[in-house]
């Protein structure tokens, strides 16, 4: 086929092609009104404080309060720190587990890979609320499933109500989240591993590499781009979606004593108020916008740094 510049208009002389508008309008309209406008409006609201009807323009004062005024800063930095910890733990625990499982699943001679795949991805599909409660029940000293199990393997004395202890609540919540979401990076790694050309692996085999070295020296470099993608997805997920899990397990106060507070729960409390604290639209918008910038920084780093550098391996 001649690749002439035939991608251009293929219409018989019609200067204004109305149908293009018809095709695009519904999606563009709904998306603009209910997704883009609220984000932009939230950014605008973050520059105001409650006052008369429209609010008073205060510039970046809300952001300054957020990071420096003790009442806000304490919560903000605590939530931020917890979010960073959450992200770090996912990167260090969830993604290596996912990579290892994907590597095992992609062994060409393995039987039943489809079944394993289906099982591993199952928890990902469940509602975080459901998962949260399931683990809450399982870890509950009241029901005793976990203590009984630990007794059985001879470690009964190590049992503690982990979710209720300030020192262990965050890591426990993280592990629950990993249990649920390991399927996503797993699938992405698995897909990338399957996409490594068979010939490349055969060439490596002829060069005398065994399975272990083929994984490290050939496959891993080739799937690095998906490593970057998993990184950014983990990042976005941890900063926004972590709300559901924390809220359903630990409640809006992200107990015990805010030890599991993340940006999402902090935003929720700020916006709606909680117990003695009154809701504040403008501070809520400020927290959301701060989160927006945090994500923007991450995405930019990914797009301009990580992805570009990894692209070299992308054949």
């Amino acid at each position: 086929m001649s690749q002439s510049v035939s991608t251009t208009s293929n219409e018989v002389k019609k200067p204004w092609r109305f149908y293009i508008f018809v095709f695009l309008a519904p999606a563009t309209f709904i998306y603009t009104v209910f997704a883009i406008y609220p984000i932009i409006e939230s950014l605008r609201l973050s520059l105001y404080q409650a006052g008369d009807d429209e609010g008073v323009f205060v510039g970046l004062a809300n952001y300054a309060r957020l990071v420096s005024e003790p009442y806000w800063a304490e919560q903000f930095w605590n939530a931020f720190k917890n979010n960073v910890l959450l992200f770090a733990m996912h990167m260090l625990i969830q993604n290596p587990i996912a990579l290892a499982l994907a590597a095992l699943l992609s062994v060409p001679t393995l039987r039943g890979a489809a079944t394993y795949r289906t099982i591993f991805f199952l928890p990902t599909l469940l509602s975080v609320v459901v998962v949260g409660f399931i683990w809450q029940l399982i870890l509950s000293p009241l029901w005793g499933v976990t203590p009984a199990f630990m007794n059985w393997i001879g470690m009964g004395s190590f049992f503690k109500p982990w979710l209720g202890l300030e020192s262990s609540a965050l890591i426990t919540v993280t592990l629950i989240s990993i249990w649920q979401y390991v399927g996503i990076p797993l699938m992405l790694f698995y897909a990338a591993l399957l996409n490594v050309p068979e010939e490349t692996i055969e060439a490596a085999r002829i060069d005398g590499l065994n399975g272990w070295w083929i994984f490290w020296k050939v496959k891993l470099p080739l799937i690095l781009p998906s490593l970057g993608l998993v990184g950014i997805l983990t990042y976005i997920g941890n900063f926004t979606a972590s709300f559901d899990l924390i809220y359903s397990i630990q409640g809006g106060l992200a107990g015990p004593n805010y030890s599991t507070d993340v940006m999402g729960t902090f935003l929720f409390r700020t916006f709606f108020g909680f117990q003695a604290q009154l809701g504040d639209v403008h501070m809520g918008a400020t927290v959301a916008s701060a989160l927006f910038f945090i994500i923007l920084i991450g995405v930019s780093l990914y797009l301009f740094g990580v992805q570009r550098r990894l692209q070299r391996y992308d054949s």
Partner: peptide, 13 residues
């Protein structure tokens, strides 16, 4: 960009 970030204005809307 998760749509959740616009929640404050979205609720008003």
């Amino acid at each position: 960009v998760p749509i959740r970030l616009g929640t404050v204005a979205l609720l008003q809307l």
